[in-house]
Simulated scan of single mutants.
Amino acid sequence: MAVVNLPTGPLTLSGGTAWNRPTGPPATRIAYAAAHVVADPHAENAPGAPAALDWEATLAFRRHLWSHGLGVAEAMDTAQRGMGLDYAATRELVRRSAAEAAACGGRIVAGVATDQLPPGPATLGQLRAAYEEQLADVLDAGAVPVLMCSRHLAATARDADDYLHLYRGLLQASSRPVVLHWLGTAFDPALEGYWGSPDVDKATETVLELIDTDPAKVDGIKISLLDADHEIRLRRRLPAGVRLYTGDDFNYPRLIRGDEQGHSDALLGIFAAIAPAAAAAFAALDRGDLDEYDRIFAPTVPLSRHIFGRPTFYYKTGIVFLAWLAGHQRHFTMVGGLQSGRSVPHLARLIELADAAGLLPDPDLAAHRANRFFEVTVG
């Protein structure tokens, strides 16, 4: 038996669920998993140090996601943008991942931001130039750009007009449709008042005004506000052909399932942790088997809500811990030293929930690694 000696007592792991691997991407939805990066455990990777990655393990994880029919959302906040991953590493990450995607026919989008700028004030002109530099890098790599929210812009913009002026210029500068990005303060407190107002309804009107400028240049918008009802209202107001990519790691089954007036597609960090289950749920949805869809996703929701619990921006630690237990990497080390971002009790509960969801495919490996972790951390 594979027994984990949790701080609360022993837990016998049940083993992973043997889901069927799909033959291709979902037919009725577009689904991206925001992928984490694997640190080089022999490098510095301390807080403030340049990021050093284990490239083979990082790219192997992306191949794992593509093999389950999911697209990869590269260089997003799950990859520790603004929390350890500097822009030199980001540029190389996008280049390498896009080449892997082209080689295996996988779908890929990649984040465009302003994080090459130094901390502190920036002019709107400097912000436009920073965004355009990263936009060119992503387009040159062959990925679909995701115009990420910028901490610099949140600190600089005076009102909604500043956002509209800058983003309209970026839409014009892109040679292909982009994905817009709205990340809530639970994920990054520095984004308070994004789109020109702390009032979500007012900010929504600005977003819709931007999209109406040139809907053909907007593939979709990723919403990560953890407010399902708001997402549905916004989804119903989008122009035809513009997708709503849910980033709601609390309510994704309901939002992807949809209703008689439409559905959300997906760009989710939790999909990096639950890829086999997500692929099986999408296959059930494609067959029209909604009961099976609900059954598969149901045990993943408590896990996701735990991983993304407050402070939400440390969810990356849980994603990497689970990747280590599941055998996708050899160690539990993160760029920026972020392996310290969650407590021992939090990670112990994560093991219980991951096992209940059937997401530990090799229980003996998971138990061995978890026991070593708890021996070191709690004695």
Rank of each mutant, 00 (worst) to 15 (best):
G106P: 02
S197R: 06
K316T: 14
T123G: 15
E231N: 01
V335I: 15
D199Y: 09
P145F: 08
L347H: 14
S340L: 08
I223A: 05
L360H: 04
S14A: 15
S150K: 00
L322S: 12
A99N: 10
I274L: 00
L166W: 03
P26D: 02
D159H: 05
H328P: 09
V178K: 03
A275R: 14
L234F: 11
T206V: 15
R168H: 05
E192M: 10
L153N: 10
V72P: 05
E133Q: 12
D140W: 09
I256D: 08
D249E: 01
V376H: 13
I108C: 03
L350C: 07
A49N: 01
V378G: 08
D161A: 11
T312N: 07
L255N: 04
A57R: 12
P22N: 06
G196P: 10
S174A: 12
R95E: 09
A323T: 11
G142D: 06
G247F: 12
V335C: 02
D286A: 09
A155K: 08
E260W: 06
Y315D: 02
T246H: 08
E260N: 12
A113V: 11
P47M: 08
L365V: 14
D214W: 11
V138D: 07
N251W: 10
A160W: 05
L234G: 12
A60I: 07
T300Q: 11
R96W: 11
T78D: 05
Y163N: 09
T213D: 08
P302S: 07
M83P: 11
T156E: 12
V72T: 00
V207L: 15
H230P: 11
P121N: 01
A52I: 01
A280C: 05
A33K: 07
A89C: 03
D77Y: 13
L93W: 14
I232M: 08
V218G: 03
H230I: 07
T12Q: 14
T8D: 15
L70I: 04
A354C: 04
I307L: 07
W66D: 04
P7I: 01
W55Q: 00
P215L: 05
G71M: 07
A110R: 01
W195A: 04
R233T: 13
F321H: 04
L226C: 07
L226M: 12
A281L: 04
A266I: 06
A57D: 07
E352V: 09
P361I: 10
A326M: 08
A130L: 05
L365M: 14
D249N: 05
P26F: 06
L255P: 12
R107V: 12
L359T: 05
L164G: 14
A75W: 10
L210Q: 03
A272R: 01
G341F: 06
G288E: 07
A113C: 15
